[in-house]
Design a protein around this nucleic acid. Structure first.
Lengths: 188, 188
DNA sequence: AGCGCACATGTCAGCGACTGTCATCACTAG
DNA sequence: CTAGTGATGACAGTCGCTGACATGTGCGCT
């Protein structure tokens, strides 16, 4: 018998998601989230830096996964090949059964400018991490930055296609196609 | 003899910039800015949507300039050429005598995550505007999005180089070099 | 001249995000 | 048994931002 119910962070997380989805992000109050989770507003802020961060908890894992993918690329890989390895590594994060959750999350984020800003920042730190990984491999600037940014763009386009309504295809397939489009861009 | 000193927005703007630069963005209070400009906090919010927006007032002009550049590209231009026209059109915004101002502004922004988020959002709406301009030209997805994003990336890399310390070169020169690097990326 | 309207600002009250500080109380190590 | 740790509660306070209403000046209309 512990003094508190366990899994406070998890309860806060799901309470927040539910409220954001049902009545909207801005219309939801941190006090409401806390109450729904049986906790205090103050405790919410002990688990999440701010009201938006709830939706991005765990994004460091995706970043780590992608960085590891970049590091594992063959020694003599070109910048674009390294970035491709990173994006391929991210596919593990998006199995078919996570699609509907990802869709809901994306809907919440796209409905609110503040959340969009936060998402962009996450993409930016991801890009920075990839850039650093490439620098460590001896790739110089600005090639590293350009490649990393391009990789993140491919990632975002792929993700958008992955959650788009219509025929549902695997993340990996879509990612391959998007990279092909990128190649065609500078070739054409 | 008007009732109020003219140029309220301008006064608020320069007061804010000065305070942000001297004591930092977060440490500066909207009330302080208003007082320094001889106005009220309420009036500040009548001129700027929020505390961050002060640093981004006028960014619609740059966007418009770039969109116009994209529209003016030759009929048969490839996606990348259209985007290049847009970036070239932006060079007019960055004459040598604006460099030190741009530097100061960038320093303020880079010192604060909230401001970085806002900047990323501006870049995102710019990218969306370019994408739409390309769609209007008959360029399909995802080529349009990829090209627009690549263009924005080139723009950002170029801008960073433009304000970097060391030998000072023209925006136009740097932009040309960055595009060449982008080309080398998918070729290599 | 007189009238009233538009408009930029001031005043005030209030909400909600976020923080600092201190108290509480189970559990644990010694 | 005692001291310490760690998650939580309670509370007060700051600041960004908004809505509602008042105010006074210049301008056009008659």
């Amino acid at each position: 018998m512990t003094r508190w119910e366990p899994g406070a962070q998890e309860r806060l997380n799901s309470a927040a998601m539910q409220l954001y989805a049902s009545k909207g992000f801005e219309e939801t109050t941190v006090a409401e989230i806390a109450e729904a989770a049986g906790l205090t507003e103050r405790t919410f802020f002990r688990h999440f830096a701010d009201k938006r961060e709830v939706l991005f908890a765990g994004s460091e894992l995706l970043e780590q996964q992608m960085v590891d993918g970049a590091k594992a690329a063959p020694e003599n890989a070109s910048p674009l090949e390294v970035v491709r390895a990173a994006v391929e590594a991210s596919a593990a994060y998006f199995p078919a059964d996570r699609r509907s959750y990802s869709r809901m999350r994306a809907e919440i984020i796209n409905a609110n400018p503040q959340l969009l800003e936060r998402e962009l920042r996450k993409m930016s730190t991801l890009s920075a991490a990839l850039t650093r990984a490439m620098n460590d491999r001896g790739i110089e600037e600005p090639a590293a930055t350009l490649a990393a940014q391009s990789g993140v763009t491919v990632f975002r386009v792929t993700f958008a296609a992955w959650i788009a309504p219509g025929r549902e295809r695997s993340f990996d397939d879509l990612q391959r196609e998007t990279f092909a489009e990128l190649g065609a861009l500078t070739a054409g």
